[in-house]
Amino acid sequence: MSNSLTGPTLAQKATVWAALAILAVPAALPLVWMVSTSLKADTQIYNAVGSGAGAVSLRSLIPDPVRWDNYPAALQTVPLVDYLRNTILLCVVSILGAVGSSAIVAYGFARTEFRGRHALFLLMISTMALPGQVTMIPRFAMFKEFGWYGTYLPLLVPVFFASPFLVFLLTQFFKTLPNEMSEAAVVDGATDWAIFTRIVLPLSKPALATCSLFTFLGAWNDFFGPLLYINDPAKYTLAYGLQQFLSAYGGKWAQLMAASTLFTLPIVVLFFLAQKTFIQGIATTGGKG
């Protein structure tokens, strides 16, 4: 969109297209393998074993016969509806809490001046540098003390207090916004809150969308958090369900791949639909101002 007025020639576009198409092969191959395995019978997955080298080719990616029933079989293993509901619950609250609070904090770091701002910012960044493995115990003990063990609270409450990762990302974005508009607004007597909600937020939609995406992915994929704090199967999430396919003695590869495919599919659809909206330019809107 934004580039269309300064856009490259047709030949250049064709070159880019070709480059992307070539790169797409290694990017897609593992995924193709995942989906193809999810449709295979166990016998086809294994028949390459011990059959000597050279048996593997692209043709082996085609399931023969196609076993659709790997999917219902995978679905039967876990209480899907419950897990899906719990996962969505955690995702929605996480996005609302984390992106909202992080945007506020990021505005403070990017667009206001106060003593100790730099030091505080570095402090925040450095909190990410300590591996969580050693803070897990005191953190756990703390939440236990709060009486939050066995509930979603240890997972949900902290997200409302901003995530350093998102604050950092948003700060970088907020800093690139032109200053003139907010300066004009200050002259007009607008408060920082007004500048934040009326100018900065609307101009930062791509960044906010990116943050939402990361938060969503984080919550969607997190199995560790729920596992540590929750002791009731009724409260577990999809990511936990996926773990169930990975047992030392299981080896149901086709079902694991079917489950993984199902687990990934909603995000793919979501991204495909959303990317148009959120990658669409602030450049345009900013330009029209």
């Binding site: 003990a141 596992l227 540590l228 773990q243 990975l246």
Partner: peptide, 21 residues
């Protein structure tokens, strides 16, 4: 009964003991 995936087989019970539950 409760199934604990093997990847947290050490962490979860140890936290349970450390946290008193």
């Amino acid at each position: 009964p409760l199934i604990i995936p093997g990847s947290v087989g050490d962490t979860k019970p140890l936290l349970g003991v450390a946290g008193g539950d």
